[in-house]
Design a protein around this nucleic acid. Structure first.
Length: 543
RNA sequence: GCGCCUGUAGCUCAGCAGGAAAGAGCAACUGACUUCUAAUCAGUGGGUCGGGGGUUCAAAUCCUCCCAGGCGCACCA
């Protein structure tokens, strides 16, 4: 259904144009099936009264095939009512080829990289990472279905101080087990998982490092810790239903000389300078608050240095668009990375940063304090096991990414019987149940039912909702907001359940009505499945 | 002090490039299972959209100031 096309061509006939035709689904039935305020937008441009423009557009549009009625109302709204025949034909089109109907090729093969989670490999993933994972994965799925060529990447901070601290922490625990005195690093990681790692490492290498210095043994301990942490994170993410195409190592950027090469590139462009023994990037030239150090006076690189190289490398790899999903606590970092993009000679829009706001975990109505260093944090795995991956993801995707999220674990569990995710899944399971029963009764469940039998107002409402999926989809893609899918699915399920309660599909007369309703159910099921799979939520055959 | 995010029903949140009379879920109350799954449905109550200005034919939505909460402002990672 491409209604905009009709409207656009009508606007052209008036000798005007508009960048975007806004369409909305009116809340009130009297206002038709679909509505546009575009005449009011045009009023200024055409220097005519909005109602006059609306009337002109309406008279052109009322001749078009899909419309039963095209009315002008209020200050200049144009309200459309579809012909039933049109709705049936559209529904038929969807049934015949769901993915063509539901997935619009908006990306046209453009290459997009979504980088998300990218947690330091120094401890288990916590709930905040889970939110990033859910949002990133859903966004990647969404874009993939919109015709983008998507890559999902996890950036591994396996160089620098944090992983060194990880190594030192394991080292200290290792010695502790062997009864060798060794001070625990000041800012080391104190979680119990470090002790487990140390014990595992001991099992693997025995007492080989009992008397070693960290300078000597460090490399091994760091490597060991990072590998184990990466495996753990990958495993947790996999169980959460999130899989990456690529894991990019920061260390590799150094080892392969990319950091050096990139800094060289910037130097050539005159965007670096030395001062006070350090090497600086002219970030202020590109809108950042201050210039930033890339190589400290002691000769070591800042994190920023590898981040510059990383983004440069990503662009080199040929992506049309980069999307970084970051925790909101990194928002101060955005201007300097954008500055880098520009300094390297690329448009700033090449990079989009989606900031995912903080998750507060409530247990027993109280916020649970989280601090990685002290080892007090709630892991993604704990929550996943306690409330389930589907519920966890759904909760994350029922908020817009820039809204602070309160994750009340008691509510998430307690409500499990009335949880929104189950509400949607249940609709799916119920439809399956109908189809199972139909097969038992030997009813042919193909999609060929004569849709003209769908005459009830609730059925028409359901059809409309289904056919508006692409409209919602487009918006979700345009704004990069997967949570719109979540709300849509709840609304769709919210139309299906009442329908189910008041209308029987099987055993009604005439038999053709059953077939028509089966087709409708099939369409609902298809859309539910499509949406849930974008969110990464499972579709249960029965519940 | 500066910057970013948030402030909508008792609670958790939507509100789709400003648009027609503010929405959902939960919680509360009242009803519905000999029928394809009651993890469901029907109904009731509940809001000065943080506050003040401004722009507009039209503002929850844009601008501005203020208030409140969160998060950032390193030759840290």
């Amino acid at each position: 259904m491409d209604i905009r096309q009709y409207i656009n061509s009508a606007i052209q006939k008036l000798g005007a144009e508009v960048p975007f035709v806004e369409l909305e689904v009116p809340r009130i039935a009297r206002h038709g099936d679909l509505s546009t305020p575009v005449a009011m937008v045009l009023a200024k441009r055409l220097k005519k009264a909005p109602r006059v423009i609306a009337e002109e557009l309406a008279s052109i549009l009322s001749a078009e095939a899909p419309f039963e009625k095209v009315e002008v109302a209020g200050p200049g709204f144009i309200n459309f009512t579809f012909k039933r025949r049109f709705l049936y034909a559209e529904l038929r089109a969807l049934l015949n080829n769901p993915s063509r109907y539901l997935r619009k090729d908006l990306g046209q093969g453009q290459r997009v990289q979504v980088e998300f989670v990218s947690a330091n490999p120094t401890g288990p993933l916590h709930l905040g990472h889970g939110r990033g994972a859910a949002v990133g994965a859903a966004l990647a799925n969404l874009l993939a279905r919109a015709g983008y060529d998507v890559e999902r990447e996890f950036y591994v901070n396996d160089a620098g101080r944090q992983v060194r601290l990880l190594g030192e922490s394991i080292f200290a625990r290792y010695k502790e087990i062997l009864g060798v005195a060794c001070p625990f690093p000041e800012e080391g990681y104190r979680g119990d998982y470090i002790k487990d790692l140390a014990a595992d490492l001991l099992r693997e290498v025995g007492e080989r490092f009992k008397d070693s210095d960290f300078d000597l043994a460090g490399e091994y301990f760091i490597r060991f810790g990072v590998d184990r942490m990466l495996k753990l994170m990958e495993h947790d993410l996999r169980d959460f239903g999130v899989v990456f195409d690529r894991w990019q190592s920061e260390k590799a950027l150094y080892d392969e000389g990319l950091v050096k090469k990139c800094l060289e590139e910037l130097r050539k462009k005159g965007k670096l300078y030395e001062e006070g023994g350090a090497l600086w990037f002219r970030a202020t030239e590109f809108g950042d608050d201050k210039d930033r150090v890339v190589i400290k006076s002691d000769g070591s690189h800042t994190y920023f240095a590898s981040d510059i190289a990383y983004h440069w490398y990503k662009i080199q790899r040929g992506f049309d668009e980069l999307i970084n999903i970051w925790g909101a606590d990194h928002h101060g970092y955005v201007p300097r990375i954008k500055a880098v993009i520009r300094a390297l000679g690329y448009p700033e829009e090449r990079l989009g940063v989606l900031l995912v706001q903080i998750v507060t975990l409530l247990r027993g109505g109280r916020p649970v304090q989280m601090s990685k260093r002290s080892g007090e944090f709630v892991t993604l795995r704990e929550v996943m096991e306690e409330v389930g991956a589907d519920t966890t993801k759904f909760i994350f995707l029922t908020r817009s990414h820039d809204s602070h999220l309160e994750f009340d674990i008691d509510v998430a569990k307690k409500e499990s019987s009335e949880n929104p995710v189950f509400y949607v899944q249940y609709a799916y399971a119920r439809i399956n149940s109908i189809f199972r029963k139909a097969e038992e009764e030997g009813i042919q469940t193909g999609k060929e039912g004569d849709l003209n039998y769908l005459e009830e107002e609730t059925e028409i409402g359901l059809i409309r909702k289904i056919l508006f999926y692409p409209l919602m989809f487009e918006g979700a893609v345009r704004t990069r907001e997967p949570h719109r899918i979540t709300f849509y699915l709840q609304e769709l399920a919210g139309l299906f359940h009442p329908y189910y309660n008041t209308h029987r599909v099987l055993g009604v007369e005439p038999a053709a009505l059953t077939l028509a309703r089966l087709s409708l159910c099939d369409a609902v099921k298809t859309v539910l499945k499509e949406g849930l799979s974008i969110l990464g939520v499972t579709v249960p055959e029965r519940m």
